[in-house]
């Protein structure tokens, strides 16, 4: 028996036009004899030309979902497709159209030029010039002699520069800003913004919500088998107001409130205001987890 009213996955997926990826009623768990379930009857669809922010608590299954989406894990039931092809078949044509930027990575002991030449040969749309442009955004010297000697943050910058230059239709990024220095985080946002096209979809899974709240245009919040929120940023800011320095009186009527140094951090219904506020992912995430019924009823009134 489900404790909370949640958004209906199937209803949501049917509204996605021409999705690049479909996760269809998958079940998955870790372990052999007594599998610990992570997903059951879980569905999701990703639309073309959007930057998704994937949020969830620790252990909610974000990385597992990315692995399932990339065909790195096999669902026990259901299937995951990219452009209609099952990702688990690991066809070269599918692999050449999906790039995974993992949280932890290793780079070979090669120069950047060698790495790009050897790996780029396997991606039909790879552009060396685009990679150089991406490296310029990160302020990285392309004359790297050995990639393995770079720091974790530098490796990530190099890999992301390469990844975007492959021009794959789908980019799955697991905690991409972990290990990046302070300028690196804004450089990452610039890179994402500069590389977005109508044909490309990017999914960014992260806990560092402030690193991505200016570059995503769709929010996905999951909690194991449930999609708690699957809404565009435009829809969220049209229906909710985010206030950083709210008063105690406002907090009393807020959907979600949390004391902050400037007063109260609030999530309020947008009704009655003409202007829209900037999305605050942290407040939205906390509000979605602690007030599931209210958030659900705002975005999905037919389920209220």
């Amino acid at each position: 028996m489900q404790k909370y009213k949640i958004m209906n996955n199937e209803t949501m997926n049917n509204t996605v036009n021409n999705p690049i990826m479909r996760v269809e009623r998958i079940a998955f768990g870790y372990g052999w004899l007594k599998p610990k379930p992570v997903f059951s009857d879980f569905s999701l669809a990703l639309e073309r030309g959007k930057v998704y922010g994937l949020l969830g608590l620790n252990g909610a299954g974000k990385s597992t979902l990315i692995y399932l989406m990339a065909g790195l894990l096999t669902p026990k039931e259901g299937r995951v497709t990219v452009n209609g092809d099952c990702v688990r078949d690991r066809r070269p044509s599918t692999l050449a159209d999906v790039y995974v930027v993992p949280e932890e990575l290793e780079m070979p002991r090669l120069s950047l030029r060698e790495f790009a030449t050897l790996n780029g040969a396997l991606y039909p749309r790879f552009s060396y010039d685009d990679m150089l442009h991406n490296l310029e955004i990160f302020d990285i010297d392309p004359g790297i002699k050995s990639l393995s000697s770079l720091s974790m943050g530098q490796k990530k910058k190099v890999l992301m520069s390469f990844a975007f230059a492959t021009h794959t239709s789908l980019m799955l990024m697991d905690e991409p800003t972990n290990g990046l220095d302070i300028p690196g985080k804004s450089q990452f946002r610039r890179l994402v913004a500069s590389q977005m096209t109508d044909d490309r979809t990017i999914l960014i899974s992260t806990h560092q919500v402030r690193d991505i709240d200016r570059c995503i245009d769709h929010v996905l919040i999951i909690d194991h088998s449930r999609v708690l929120l699957d809404q565009s940023v435009a829809s969220i800011t049209a229906k909710l107001r985010f206030v950083e320095n709210g008063t105690a009186a406002q907090a009393a009527t807020a959907i979600f409130s949390q004391p902050s140094v400037m007063g109260y951090s609030l999530v309020l219904p947008a009704g009655g205001y003409d202007d829209e506020t900037q999305l605050n992912l942290e407040s939205l995430f906390n509000a979605t987890l602690s007030c599931r019924d209210r958030i659900s009823s705002i975005f999905n009134p037919e389920n209220a």
């Binding site: 690991r90 692999l95 999906v98 995974v100 932890e104 991606y123």
Partner: peptide, 12 residues
């Protein structure tokens, strides 16, 4: 990390 890189390499 190596398994991800190897499995995701676009070869059959």
């Amino acid at each position: 990390a190596k398994r991800i890189a190897r499995i995701m390499t676009p070869a059959s």
